[in-house]
């Protein structure tokens, strides 16, 4: 049996909104480590990895490891029926082919339950070895989203280059070219507004802007985003979910031949 009570129900709504366009179906795994998911997009270029640790839940009960296959669009439809301030509880009985989402209003005057059919999903998992990245950039998530959106009106791919100068986002299209350079900036009022660049080696990687734009849907989950980059390796784009865990995207770079 499984019962997970999340006081910040709005968080789960935001998680679903950030991944439902990238991935259709996914197994949610529940274990002592937390409530997690690893799923690949249909073109096998991006992987989303989510972890919500048990400490973030008011009640985290799961007496054995459970994997629940869900259609993310259907799950998002159900979670849209929860208010942003609602408490969300997930419940599943042993051996059941359904999961129940219970929504409680903060004042406890409205309680709703939605039962959703589970599905069997054969998902293969990727192993992500620890890597020493050539460069790690932390910047405001809204700024990163803005740059990806702006560049996608000009070109289809973005070259992300980290040098001593800063981090450069470049694109090229039929109408012209665009370059945005962000320099390290720690002289800010709030720490989340800082841009911090750790560079061991210069690195330059090319990515499809369609994917980059898709993963910036996680922006409402965190004020900052971290880009971990190494030559010839997928980028890791991480949004930390305060005190609970993270949502990470692994995105394969394009390669010139």
């Amino acid at each position: 049996m499984l019962e997970l009570r999340l006081v910040q129900g709005g968080l789960l709504k935001k998680v679903l909104e950030s991944i439902k366009d990238l991935v259709n179906d996914a197994n949610f795994d529940c274990s002592a480590t937390g409530f997690s998911l690893q799923a690949m997009d249909s073109s096998q270029v991006a992987v989303v990895a989510l972890l919500l640790r048990p400490e973030g839940f008011e009640r985290y009960w799961c007496d054995r490891n459970i994997s629940m296959g869900m259609n993310l669009n259907n799950m998002a439809k159900m979670l849209k029926c929860a208010g942003n301030d609602d408490i969300i509880t997930l419940k599943a009985e042993d051996g059941s082919d359904t999961v129940t989402f219970m929504f409680e209003s903060p004042t406890q005057d409205k309680i709703a339950d939605f039962e959703m059919k589970l599905m069997d999903i054969n998902s293969e998992r990727l192993g992500f070895p620890e890597a020493d990245y050539h460069a790690i950039v932390r910047m405001p998530s809204s700024e990163f989203a803005r740059i990806c959106k702006d560049l996608s009106s000009i070109g289809n791919t973005v070259v992300i280059s980290v040098t001593k100068e800063g981090v450069r986002f470049s694109t090229r299209g039929d109408i012209g070219t665009a370059n945005v350079v962000c320099r390290q900036n720690t002289a800010v009022d709030k720490p989340e507004e800082a841009t911090i660049i750790e560079m061991n080696e210069p690195v330059s990687l090319t990515f499809g802007l369609r994917y980059m734009n898709s993963l910036t849907k996680a922006t409402p989950l965190s004020n900052t985003v971290t880009l971990s980059l190494s030559s010839g390796l997928p980028a890791v784009v991480e949004y930390r979910i305060a005190e609970m865990g993270y949502i990470r995207f692994y995105l394969a770079p394009k390669i010139e031949e």
């Binding site: 690949m40 096998q44 990727l126 192993g127 090319t206 692994y250 394009k254 031949e257």
Partner: peptide
């Protein structure tokens, strides 16, 4: 020519 490899080219599958 710019190619888009899939993630399995980089990481092992379990």
């Amino acid at each position: 020519l710019i190619l888009q490899p899939c993630l399995m080219c980089f990481y092992p599958l379990y």
